[in-house]
Design a binder for these strands. Structure first.
Lengths: 336, 336
DNA sequence: TTGTATGCGTTATCAG
DNA sequence: CTGATAACGCATACAA
């Protein structure tokens, strides 16, 4: 049995209006009736119906989060932060797994629209024009997480990929390395592919080190297996490398596995630095030195920004989150 | 601007009742009016309000999923399966991160109740009496995932932990190992702690191998760091071990890291088998042999069971999912 | 085949 | 301080 405000009103001998006032702690009732009503609520175990509330308030206290993939700790860390901030703000999160599929994404957006969610966090994927237009029509705030768009004024939170890649490469250079390769993601990926390559190249240039196409491997994605394959071909093309910057931790760990198979000692013969600082980074052998994104904080930040927009509906600034090197054991000084 | 059924009705020159009938493709209207209405819907870009529907139909097409932690690929794999099946069934999932905290869990349950979700999947944690009672009062179906309860008739989906642990241990035995240690989780954990220990012991007994308390390490949890520490003390207590069964992949990989630090070669000097088959298992060096749980399928199964209960509301049977050994490189024959 | 009217559980606007 | 009552957007019983 589930009770309504009516049942409470009847039991407390007041009108539903009064009950409503008390539930929403507004003004306009005596302490005495308040007590009476509260007791009735307690006795019945009444809990308000958020669906009815949503209908009238036009606020469902639910947000939608779109992920291109779910099975990666990168995503979970983001989700974890989003969920925390969202729950702290008294809302819930609906997860949507788009698989980077346009049709699926549109279906999800439609679903979210029908559910009248309050806002959207769009993560780790390019915001296609089609998506943007649809969300604009939905008329709910949106923030981009771990991605950004140049085409429209949508606030985002991410690290500066170019800068972070620069930092990683520079770290290697500062350790005395000069022959530094890169295992990159997809260079056609404007968000996280190209910028990291650019950062790597910039760092090399700024330190008067030569750029050599043979020292860069381009992959489709950022996966472990890409990393395994990449190291092999990389070393074939440029056998004298002493260090490698991998554009993701998975790529880096794939490279480490490959190195192990090839009998190359990390970091003694080859230094490897990753990107992300996922939980797997500390679990690898040797533990992976990497440039960390504050993923959980990023998730929290994105959610908080969304709620800010929801409550004030003014424009909001994007956030470039700080990255930092987490030094573990996969990089060492180049002996001189 | 967001339109309602009223706007559609007006534009199509029919009553809202007719529009409603057409949207829900019921009978009782001419092809001609149907066309008219559909055109109006198209023109306005009308999309039904699921909140209003939820209020009247008493079905929100939303389910709640409770996780004790979010940041682990174990959880993501489960979630991934749940999300898929749920979306295929036309519903959405709200994720709740309880942190194994009783108070938080109750808060989440209350939230889910207020939101009038259709059902609950409760994962990877003991179902406390308090939770059960509350959910029972909520009067929505629930299924347990990767956990179970003896106290109440709640359907669950999980592997048989005891059996799976037995299989893992037996695998080691069949490879010729006789001195086999175990790095276990929490022995007070009735769901995944104790049963795996029991399975290990059973396998030893059935093969006439001695049980030795010194060969078992008990941990608080199943984490990487627990695994690192455990291997060290384990080898101190029982230096002649040739193989170890770890009760989770994280424990196993922690053990591998430890072995590496100690200069012990895996699998040449020590074989290690894990439990779960997370994505990290294939990424370790050497790749981890482990007993696999079909996590994604388990998630799908749980969701499907929930929808079955929702649609027929008869009792449903629990499922013991099959486990299997995934042989990689961390276990080898004991040389004779 | 179609339309009117009522209710789902709230909130909010009125009077009183 | 309190209570009717009209929305919110939709589904449906009942009339027509």
């Amino acid at each position: 049995m589930t009770f309504t405000i009516k049942d409470v009103a009847k039991l407390a001998n007041v009108s539903i209006a009064t009950v409503s006032r008390i539930i929403n702690n507004q003004t306009g009732y005596s302490e005495k009736t308040k007590k009476k009503v509260l007791e009735a609520i307690e006795e019945l175990g009444y809990e308000p119906n958020a669906v009815a509330r949503g209908l009238i308030n036009k606020r469902t206290h639910t947000i939608g989060v779109l992920f291109p993939k779910l099975s990666s700790t990168l995503v979970t860390d983001l989700l974890s932060g989003i969920e925390k901030a969202t729950h702290d703000a008294g809302s819930s999160v609906i997860v949507c797994h788009t698989e980077s599929n346009g049709e699926k994404t549109m279906k999800y957006l439609q679903l979210l629209n029908e559910k009248r969610i309050d806002g959207i966090i769009f993560t780790s994927a390019p915001l296609l024009e089609e998506y943007y237009q649809y969300i604009k029509k939905m008329n709910v705030p949106m923030v981009l997480l771990s991605t950004e768009t140049y085409a429209h004024p949508v606030p985002y939170v991410k690290v500066n990929d170019r800068h972070a890649a620069y930092t990683a490469t520079q770290f290697l250079i500062n350790k005395g390395h000069e022959k530094i390769g890169m295992i990159s993601g997809n260079k056609d990926d404007i968000i996280s592919g190209k910028p990291r390559i650019d950062g790597y190249i910039s760092a090399l240039q700024d330190h008067n080190l030569p750029i050599d196409e043979k020292k860069i491997i381009y992959n489709r994605g950022f996966s472990f297996y890409d990393g395994m394959d990449s190291l092999k071909t990389l070393l074939k093309q440029a056998p004298d490398l002493t260090a490698v910057f991998a554009a993701s931790d998975e790529l880096a760990i794939g490279a480490i596995s490959s190195a192990y198979q090839l009998g190359i000692k990390v970091p003694d013969e080859l230094s490897i630095i990753g990107y992300d600082n996922l939980s797997i980074a500390e679990m690898s052998v040797p533990p992976l030195t990497t440039v960390a994104q504050p993923l959980t904080e990023m998730g929290e930040m994105a959610a908080n920004m969304l709620f800010e927009m929801l409550n004030s509906d003014k424009l909001i600034e994007s956030r470039i989150m700080p990255h930092k090197i987490v030094e573990r054991k996969s990089v060492r000084d180049k002996e001189v």
